[in-house]
Design a protein around this nucleic acid. Structure first.
Lengths: 116, 116
DNA sequence: TCCATTCATCGTAAAAATACGATAAAAGAT
DNA sequence: ATCTTTTATCGTATTTTTACGATGAATGGA
């Protein structure tokens, strides 16, 4: 019965964003985009220690997760942060983290174990 | 030259934690541990829609990332949140997110693209 | 001592992530 | 029209993740 229940929407949404952030290259891309405001793909490729194809793949991952947006500008593509998603994520991750530290009663390293 | 630089320690550390959170099962485990304070492995297995072996694997992932602690209690193992890691992560992720929303100048969906 | 319980680990299979060269598509320049 | 630039996608190889049954190790109880 409990076994049959799948994961909740909240948990999945959080995991999806976390997964998109789960690679140093993608963290670096986001930081770089935030610093430079918006910039074209080629600039990002120059900065990252990865090939153009791999960077493009990481950009797609970030785009699929809704963390960045890409606009075609002539032959170039201009990427930028999707602030809405980040704001939403900020709220969700903080709720998550606050619940953990607020509820947590394990101050002793788990030396007592209530099994019920 | 820029290509030769590897990813920074900060980026890697953030990505490592994000990766540990990048699965609904692990989010659920953390939530459940926070709610129940501390509890034995078997309880977690009962709640999750996964086999004992798979849950154990997820627990190891969380432990390796430093997010949870496990204490042997007789024949059982009592798990709990590692609050220190969460506090550190909370601080790091918020710095990361604040920098993004503070610096971000892309308010127009990327219609202007400064390539330099 | 023997058996049951609890949990980690092994072995393994299937799926996903990561990386890159090669190529395609689309735009701009000549 | 042709060539260059820019970026996405294809094909593919390697590694990692995810999942589970089976087994092993340790404890506790009969």
């Amino acid at each position: 019965m409990t076994k049959e229940e799948k994961f909740s929407e909240n948990e999945i949404r959080l995991a999806v964003i976390a997964k998109a952030l789960a690679h140093p290259a993608r963290i670096q891309i986001i930081k770089f985009l935030a610093e430079s405001g918006e910039c074209m793909c080629g600039r990002i490729v120059d900065v990252l220690p990865l090939s153009q194809a791999t960077v493009s793949q990481h950009l797609r991952t970030l785009k699929n997760a809704g963390l960045i947006k890409g606009n075609i500008e002539g032959q170039r593509v201009c990427y930028c942060i999707n602030e809405n998603t980040f704001k939403l994520f900020e709220s969700e991750i903080n709720t998550f983290l606050e619940n953990i530290t607020r509820n947590n009663t394990c101050k002793n390293g788990g030396s007592k174990c209530q099994t019920g």
